[in-house]
Amino acid sequence: MQNTRTLVLDTDIGSDVDDAMALAQILGSPELRLDSVTTVYGDTDLRARIARRYGVLAGHELAVHAGESTTLSGREVWWPGHEGSLHDGLADEVIAAEPAVEHLIATLQRRPGEIDVVAIGPLTNIAAALDQEPRVATWMRHLWIMGGSFAHGSEAEHNFRSDVVAARTVMSAGVPTTVTGLDVTRQLGIDQAGLELIGAAGPLGAALRADIQQWWEFWQQEWNVPHDPVAVLTLTRPELFTFSEPGVVEIDDEGISKFAPDEAGTIRLALTVDGPRAAAAIIEAIQQAGAENRGVGDGHRSRRR
C-alpha cells in the first residue's frame, strides 16, 4: 500500500450527490487522511453542515469550514433547492469558525509540500486563496480537480462554467495539477445494482442511497455519473487511468476548456479510465466507510467541538 496522503477536500456538497459519494469514498480509503473539508458556492454554511453529517455517519468528527458563497465571475449560483432536505437536524451540526479560505492558507503554510487539495466544486475558494497568498501555489503538494471537458467539440462543464474567473486563476497558477473532465467521468456510471451495494453500507450507505435516489428523481433517471469520485480515484488508483503529458489549460468566457501540451506546463489530464474497475473501487471504498460505523443510529447527533 502506498504511503498515506493528507488532503483537504473542497466541495459544493449537497446539490449533485456525487460530492457526498466522494466524501464517503475518501473516508473509506485507508491510503488517505482527510485533514478538513471546505465548502464553496451558494449556501456554504448548509453545505458545511451536510458534510459534517456525512462525517458523523461514517464515525468521523470532521473539521468543516464554510467558504465563498458568491463567484468571482459574478455568475449566479445554480441552486436546485433540495440540498440537505433529507437530513433532519442539520442545524445541530457544528462547523468551524475559521472561514475556508483563511483555513486553507494557514493549513498549507503550516505544512508546505505535504498536503494535497481535492477540488470537486467551482474553484472560487482555491482562487481566492491564491489571490490572497500567491505562495499557496508552492505550498500544495498536488491539486486534484474535477472540472472541464476536453473531448472534441466539448461542452462547458459546471464547475468551470460556474466561475470562469476562478478557474482561469487556478489553471494559470503553476500548481502541480491533475484534471479529470467530463470526457473521462462519463466512462462509467452508478446504476440500480450499485445503489443496492451502497445502500447496504450501514447508516452512511442508507443516507447516500436516499440522496442518490433524490438526485435520480430530480433528473428523472435511474443512474448517475460519479464525476467527483472518479477524480478522487486519480489520486488513489492511478493505475486505472491513462494521463496526458504536461500542458496548460485555457478556458473561454463560456467555460469551455481546452488543453494544450507544453513541456513547461504543470497540468496533466486524465485521458481514459477502466470504467468497470473504477465503479467497483468507488463502491468498495464507500462500503468500507459505512462498515466502520455501523453502530450509528438514525437519531445520532454530532458531539460539540
Rank of each mutant, 00 (worst) to 15 (best):
A210P: 13
F218W: 02
L32D: 07
R168C: 03
I256T: 11
I50C: 05
E250I: 06
G113I: 00
A127W: 00
L34G: 08
I126V: 13
D12N: 04
D262T: 14
H158R: 11
E61P: 06
R53C: 02
G202E: 02
A270S: 15
G74F: 01
Q214I: 00
G67M: 03
V56A: 00
E292D: 13
E76V: 12
V136M: 11
I13C: 08
D298N: 13
V118P: 10
I283A: 09
F218P: 06
V37D: 06
T70L: 14
S257F: 05
R237D: 11
I115G: 02
E102V: 02
E250D: 04
S29H: 11
V184K: 14
V164W: 09
A285K: 03
Q220A: 15
R303T: 10
E76P: 01
L108R: 00
D16E: 13
E292A: 15
R209H: 06
Q109D: 12
L208F: 11
G121M: 11
L143R: 02
L233M: 10
Q214R: 15
S15E: 05
T266A: 14
D163C: 13
T185M: 09
T180C: 14
W215P: 03
A20I: 02
H227L: 09
A200G: 07
L271H: 00
G189W: 15
T38A: 11
L86A: 05
D253R: 12
I190G: 11
G202V: 03
D18I: 08
T124W: 02
Q25T: 01
G199W: 13
Q187V: 00
P99Y: 04
A173W: 10
